[in-house]
Design a binder for these strands. Structure first.
Length: 470
RNA sequence: GGCGCCUUGGCGGAGUAGCUACGCAGCGGUCUGCAAAACCGCGUACACGGGUGCAAAUCCCGUAGGUGCCUCCA
């Protein structure tokens, strides 16, 4: 399987260190507010990575952290802790805020049918590991202390700017923010921050240097190494993390171990709404609830995510959601053929049922080309709606649906049968049609439509399909 | 101001040298009692200007527009 590697700027064949296991570390959410659909885009894309690895007979070992402390309003280690800020906003403690949004997030993964990570470690549960890592850095001479904390001296790590192709001097020249004048280099970052002397934080811990809390970056190194070892197979995250967060992770991790931190870096691009990026400050941070309020299943949202490639900046709009909803209806109409074997289903034309998931897997294995996989699936769906031969292919058809779901997570094989009453209505309509009682037949069709069941008449008899209820 | 990226038909969106995906919407047709269903067909898309190649949407240079990061942020 191939994946674009930010480290080498090339699409590469994945070679895990200890096949079939593939270790994956993903930068998870900072749990201080509701995630917006842009956040969910990225998590759906990591899900595709894990599903595709599994389809390739790998065993992904996936760790996603939950940042519940220390992520400051500015990545440059300035400003407030987001958790503390969220606490003030909601008149709760930082602990309560973290708990609430962690649960919400984990629940959201399930709602979106995202594969459950093997572990979802929290930063606050790994303070000891973070302190130990800072001690090791200190022992190697990478740290220094100033008034507000312990910092990593990036000038001691010569490859610092390589990963993000940063020109450090240019960054300095172009910087628009004031850097802490005590820092030795503008790119230096906090490993441990001291609690302010005049106030008490909700979250703070003792450390060899004084009471305080860990810097944002150190948690990822500490937890990934604890659970997945010193060198990861794959590290994934949002494209915005390349210049600061991941650059810092690499610096502090490789400074400690002397080994490469991750062999493959996967970065997901962002989505825009009306040509603008999603940002809380822009007020366009739609949530899953907003999608459901418009009457769309979350599978529709997943299909929309699949329709674009993870490395291109893509667009969200309600028009696009509508298109995705129509497309999903087609796929569902194909899936429910399994409940209508009297019409017969079997292998056909260009592809056998066995070939279909294989082809989808092949396309996904080419740097997660989900748009191509969907294009293929749409062709299959179109052909299947007209080719109906014999009932002996039913088992293979159901297996095909399951395998497609394993790859794409669209839950096509989960769609159940209609009720016996609804089947009776369809039979009743057939009787009316035979009697040429069109008024009665149309009345029944209307009744079924209200229940979300559409019927189309074919040479093989009536075939029902899930109709969108709006 | 610095450093990147992008520009494909009405919309979304793949493809990255040679048979011009796919979906949505639209139009025309077939089937049908009818059909909102299904199927078939259509619109001659690759920002603009140069260049390299037998061949460019695909490579190179330039122009225009957009956008990302350097603040928040996936």
């Amino acid at each position: 399987m191939k994946l674009y590697n930010t480290l080498t700027k090339k699409v590469e064949q994945i070679k895990p260190q200890h096949p079939p296991v593939v270790t994956i570390y993903t930068c998870g959410p900072t749990v201080y507010d509701y995630p917006h659909i842009g956040n969910w885009f990225t998590f759906l894309r990591y899900d595709l990575l894990v599903r595709t690895l599994r389809a390739n007979a790998y065993e992904p070992k996936w760790v996603m952290n939950i940042t519940d402390v220390g992520h400051l309003v500015s990545d440059a280690d300035e400003g407030e802790d987001k958790l503390e800020k969220g606490a003030r906003r909601e008149h709760k403690t930082a602990w309560e805020v973290a708990e609430y949004y962690s649960s919400y997030f984990i629940n959201g993964l399930a709602r979106l049918n995202i594969m459950q990570p093997n572990m979802l470690p929290k930063a606050t549960h790994h303070i000891k590991e973070q302190i130990e890592l800072i001690l090791r850095l200190e022992a190697k001479g990478y740290t220094y202390q100033i008034e507000d904390g312990i910092y990593f001296d990036t000038s001691k790590f010569p490859r610092y700017g390589d990963f993000a192709q940063l020109d450090i001097d240019e960054l300095q020249a172009g910087a628009r923010v004031e850097v802490n004048p005590e820092k030795r280099n503008p790119t230096d970052f906090a490993l441990w921050k001291f609690s302010p002397k005049d106030s008490k934080r909700d979250m703070e811990w003792p450390s060899p240097w004084g009471t305080g809390f860990p810097g944002w970056h150190i948690e990822c190194s500490a937890m990934s190494m604890k659970y997945l070892g010193e060198t990861l197979d794959v590290h994934s995250g949002g494209i915005d993390h390349i210049p600061v967060h991941h650059t810092n992770e690499i610096a502090q991790s490789e400074a400690v171990t002397g080994k490469r931190f991750a062999n493959y870096w996967m970065h997901t691009n962002h989505i825009t709404i009306s040509g603008e990026k999603i940002a809380k400050s822009a007020g366009n941070g739609l949530t899953l609830e907003d999608i459901e309020a418009k009457g769309y299943d979350l599978e529709v949202f997943r299909l929309l995510v699949l329709e674009s490639h993870y490395r291109t900046q893509s667009t969200f709009s309600w028009e696009a959601m509508e298109a995705a909803a129509n497309r999903l209806q087609d796929l569902r109409a194909m899936a429910v053929l399994r409940w209508q074997p009297q019409h017969g289903i079997s292998d056909y034309g260009t592809f056998s049922f066995e070939d279909v998931p294989q082809e989808i897997g092949r396309l996904m294995s080419e740097d997660l080309n989900s748009p191509a996989a969907l294009a293929f699936l749409s062709q299959v769906s179109t052909q299947l709606s007209t080719v109906l031969v014999g009932a002996n292919g039913l088992d293979h058809f159901i297996l095909m649906l399951r395998k497609i779901d394993e790859l794409l997570g669209l839950k096509l094989s989960d769609i159940g049968d209609i009720t016996p009453e609804q089947k009776q209505l369809i039979a009743k309509r057939e009787e009316s049609r035979l009697a040429k009682d069109w008024a009665s037949a149309d009345r029944v069709r209307q009744e079924l439509l209200k229940q979300g069941v559409g019927v189309r008449d074919t040479p093989y008899g009536p075939i029902w399909f899930p109709e969108r209820l709006q």
